[in-house]
Simulated scan of single mutants.
Amino acid sequence: MTLAPVTARATTTGAGPDGAPPAGTTDGATKPRPAARRPWRRHRREYLVFLAFALPNLALIAVFTYRPLVLNLYYSTLQWNLGSRTATVVGLDNYVRWFTDPRSLEVLRVTAVFTVATVGATLLLGLLLATVLDRRLHGRTVARSVIFAPYVLSGVGVGMVWLFIFDPTYGALAALLRTWGASSPQWYLDRDWALVMVIVVYVWKNLGYAAVIYLAALQSVPRDVLDAASLDGAGPLRRFWRITVPLLSPTTFFLLVTTVLSSLQSFDLIHVMTAGGPLDGTTTLMYQVYVEAFVTGRAGYSSAISMILFAVLLVMTLGQLRFLEKKVHYA
C-alpha cells in the first residue's frame, strides 16, 4: 500500500508540479533536435570553399566557350557578310548550301585522309620511338629533348623551314634526291603530293608529344610481368604485343582522342605551306572555315561550316568514349 505513490512518482519523472509536462516538451516527450541541419552546418565550409574555386572557372567557361558556341549557332542561320551592319535570317539555308555543294565532298575526303594518316602515323611512330628511348642508351636524355622540341615550336616557323626543305628546285630534299639520280616531286603543284607534304610535316611536329607520353607509360609497365613471361619462353616481340601493348591501352586511348581532335583542328601548317591548295588539295574543314570567313567574307556560311565541324568533333569523341573505351585494359 505504501509503494503505490513511489511508483506513480517514478513514472511521472520530469512532470510539473500539477502533472503537466515541463516547458519545451510536447505531451511529456522531449522535443527532437533538428538533426537534418547538422550535415549542412558541418560541411558548409567545404561547400563554400568549393564554390569559391569552381564558380570563377565555370564563369570563364560559360563566357568564353558556351556563349561563343551559342552565338555561332545563331550566326549560322544568317546571311551575313563580315563587316556588314545588316544580316538576313535564312534559317538552315547555309547548311543546305554546304551539303549540296560538290566541293564539300572533296573537303571531307581531304579532312578524312589527313586525320587518319596523321593520327595513325603519330601513334605508331611515337610508340616505336618511345620503345627505343626506353632502353639504356648513351645520350638518351638529349635525344628525348631533341625529339620533343618540334612539338613546342611555332607551327608558322616549322612550316616556313619545311617549305625550303621541300622546294623542288633549291630545297635540301631535292638536292638529296639528285645525288641518288632521282627528281623531286612537284610538291606545290600536285594535289596529292601537297597533301603528303603537309602530313609529313604535321607528323614530324607532333611525333615528340606521342613519344613522351608513351615513354612515361612504358616506364610504369611492371617489370616482373615481363620477366615472368620471359621465363615462360616468350620472346621480345611476343612480350611486346601480348603484354606491353595491352597495358598501354589507356595511354593509347588518351592519345587517340587528343590527336584526333588536334588533327581535325589543324590550321597553321596548312595555311603557311599550301594555303589550302593546289585546287583545294589540302583544304580541310577547319581551313574552309577560315577561307569562307576571312577570304570570301561569308561569315554566316563560315559559322555553319564551323558548327558542322563541331558536330563532327562531338560525334567522334563520343563514339570513341562509347565504343573504344570498352577495349581499354585498366590495371
Rank of each mutant, 00 (worst) to 15 (best):
T2D: 09
P5I: 09
P5E: 06
R9K: 11
G14E: 02
G14Y: 03
P17C: 00
A20Q: 12
P21D: 08
A23H: 10
A29W: 12
L48G: 06
L48Y: 03
V49L: 14
F50N: 09
F53V: 15
A54R: 02
A62L: 14
F64D: 03
Y66A: 10
Y66H: 09
L69T: 14
N81H: 06
L82C: 05
G83H: 07
G83T: 07
A87K: 08
T88F: 04
L92T: 13
R103T: 04
E106F: 00
A112S: 10
V116P: 02
V119F: 08
L123Q: 12
L129K: 00
L137E: 05
R144Q: 14
Y151E: 00
S154F: 04
G155L: 07
V156D: 04
G157P: 00
V161I: 15
D167K: 03
T169E: 10
L176V: 13
R178G: 06
R178K: 11
S183M: 02
P185A: 06
W187F: 15
Y188H: 05
Y188A: 11
D190F: 02
L195V: 10
Y202S: 15
V203S: 06
W204V: 11
Y209E: 04
Y209D: 04
V212G: 01
I213V: 15
Y214Q: 09
A217C: 06
A217L: 04
S220H: 10
V221R: 11
S230D: 11
G233R: 10
G233S: 11
A234N: 08
R238T: 14
P246M: 07
L248Y: 05
S249V: 05
P250H: 12
F253M: 15
L255G: 03
L255R: 03
L255D: 02
T258S: 05
V260F: 07
S262L: 08
S263Y: 01
S263D: 07
F267L: 07
I270T: 05
T274N: 03
A275C: 00
G276L: 07
Q288P: 00
V289A: 10
V291A: 07
A293F: 08
F294P: 03
G297V: 06
A299I: 13
Y301R: 11
S302K: 02
A304V: 05
A304G: 04
I305A: 10
S306T: 08
L321R: 10
L324S: 04
L324I: 12
E325R: 15
E325A: 12
H329F: 12
Y330T: 08
A331S: 11
